[in-house]
Amino acid sequence: MADKHVSERLIALLSGRGEDLGAEWAEKVTGSLGGRVARAEVERELREIYAALVAALSDGSVDGYDEAFGEVRALLTELSRNRALQGFTPTETAVSVFALKQVLEPSLVGEDSDADAYLRFAALLDTLGLFTIEVYSRTREELIAAQAEQLLELSTPVVKLWEGVIGVPLVGTLDSARTMVVMEKMLQALIDTGSEQAIIDITGVPTVDTEVAQHLLKTVVAARLMGAECTISGIRPQIAQTIVALGIDFGDIVTKSTLADALRHALRRSGTTVSRTAPQAGAR
C-alpha cells in the first residue's frame, strides 16, 4: 500500500524534528495573528492538532476526509469557530494549517529530502486548510443570520401610547419577512395590553412595495377579527403615489398624515376626550 508507505515516511519526517518543529510552527502562527492570541494558547491548540495528526497518519491514511482524521477535523472545527467568532480573517484562520507546510520546507533541503512525502503531505494540509475555511465561513454565516434576527427584533418595537392604544413606529425598509414579524408582534400586543386601538406609523419608511402594502392591509383585517382597530399614519407622498399606482385599495382603513392626528383619532374612538385647560397664565 503506497499510502501506508507515504504516511510512515511522513511520521518519520514529523517526529524527526519533534519539539523543534512544533515550536517553529507555533512561532509562525503566533506571528501572523499579531499577538491577538496568546502564545501559550496557540501552542496548546497546535500541540493537540499535531498529536492528532500524527495519530491519524499512523493509521496509514493521507486523505483529510478519511475517518482517521476525525479527531483532527474536530480540533480544526473548534479552532476555526473560535477564530471566526473572535473576528479573525479567513487567512489568519487557515494559517494555522498552512504554516506547517512552510515549517517542513527546510527538511526538503539536504540529503534526506523526501519530495514525494512532502507533496503528499502538502496535499493533505491543503485539504485540511480548505476545511478550516469552510467551517470559518459557515460560522460567520450563522453569526450573520443570528444578528439579522436580533436586528429584526430590535427594529420592530411595539409601544403603549395610551391606555388602550398601542403604537408600532416602523423605521427603515420594510420587506415581507419583517412586515410579517411586526404583524404578529402587534396582534399579540393587542391581547397582552388589552388595547382596542393600534397605530402603525410608517413615517420612517422610505418605500412600500405591493407585497408589503398587502401585509399591512392583512394586519388591519386580522386586528379587526380580534376586535381591534388600526390606524395607519405617516404615509409619505411618494408612498401614497405608489399605493395609488399599484391599485391597492385601502378600503375603509383610516389613514392619518401624522402620528399625532392618529393618536387623537384613536383616543376619540376609544372614548377618551383630551381638552386643553384654559391658558391661565395669559388670562390673569
Partner: peptide, 8 residues
Amino acid sequence: PAVAITLV
C-alpha cells in the same frame, strides 16, 4: 392572533 392571521 394566529387564528386571525390564518383566516385573513
